[in-house]
């Protein structure tokens, strides 16, 4: 059964169709890639799916429920969690607190509970945070301020926070940008492990090697429209895809 089903997804910014009648289906347990040249509308798709922007038209069904019209914080609670293309962290907080926030905010705590509780976190939340840090390889950095981490670790922390929110579907926007070969290999392995543990992944990435080696299915966008869709080898040998990338002078990795 499809975990996520977006139909006819459309977003206009003024006269510009940033996303135009795009269908995306993600099945539970898959790693799906969303690729396309710069400005193709990938991030905009993520913003629509996660409720950060309202679509101009189209429907989104997640886990059997319609998402259009829900606020981002409602969508997170249903298990759809996104990361950001630009490194976005609570820079002046420790790595541990960053992940704790990711965990805490999605836990089913009402406003009232938040008002009454002290900062000291319940033991099970601390335990879970350490698990996430261990799992993502960030444990040695637990007490560092997020702003003092090297770039690669900062990107990983973004993923760790999203993971702490216990997603059913994780939307990763360019997780390995600016990473060296080694680091990006590690993160891609992490993505596979995340999937093996039961979280479905939709991934935007320009690094073709990373995408081809990780995704089982790839959706290609160009100028806001879906160009094609298929397995990595199908997409990789598709003329239209190659032209789209060459035409825009896009990066081949």
């Amino acid at each position: 059964m499809a975990l996520l089903e977006a139909r006819n997804l459309t977003k206009y910014f003024g006269g510009l169709a940033a996303v135009n009648r795009v269908d995306i289906t993600v099945n539970a347990g898959e790693i799906v890639g969303l690729i396309g040249p710069n400005g193709a509308g990938k991030t905009t798709c993520f913003n629509l799916l996660s409720g950060f922007l309202p679509p101009t038209a189209g429907s989104i069904t997640f886990n059997g429920e319609a998402l259009v019209g829900l606020k981002p914080h409602h969508i997170v609670k249903r298990g759809l969690v996104r990361t950001f293309q630009l490194t976005t962290l609570f820079l002046d907080m420790t790595v541990l607190t960053n992940v704790l926030l990711g965990l805490h905010l999605s836990s089913q705590r009402g406003f009232g509970r938040v008002l009454l509780s002290l900062r000291s976190f319940p033991r099970e939340e601390i335990t879970r945070t350490h698990e996430v840090l261990e799992f993502t390889g960030l444990a040695p950095y637990a007490d560092e301020l997020a702003k003092n981490l090297p770039h690669g670790r900062q990107r990983t922390l973004g993923i760790a926070m999203a993971l702490a929110a216990r997603p059913l579907l994780l939307l990763l926007d360019e997780p390995v940008t600016g990473m060296n070969l080694d680091e990006s290999q590690q993160v891609m392995n992490l993505v596979k492990t995340i999937r093996d543990r039961g979280t479905t992944v939709l991934l935007v990435e320009h690094n073709m090697k990373a995408v081809m080696g990780t995704c089982e299915r790839i959706v290609v966008l160009n100028f806001g429209e879906k160009l094609t869709e298929g397995t990595p080898s199908e997409v990789g040998s598709n003329r239209a895809v190659i032209e789209a990338y060459l035409g825009s002078g896009g990066e081949h990795a």
Binding site: F52, R82, F90, L101, S106
Partner: peptide
């Protein structure tokens, strides 16, 4: 520090 991140975390 980052309101969009807070939002994305629920």
């Amino acid at each position: 520090m980052a309101d969009n991140l807070s939002q994305s975390l629920g």
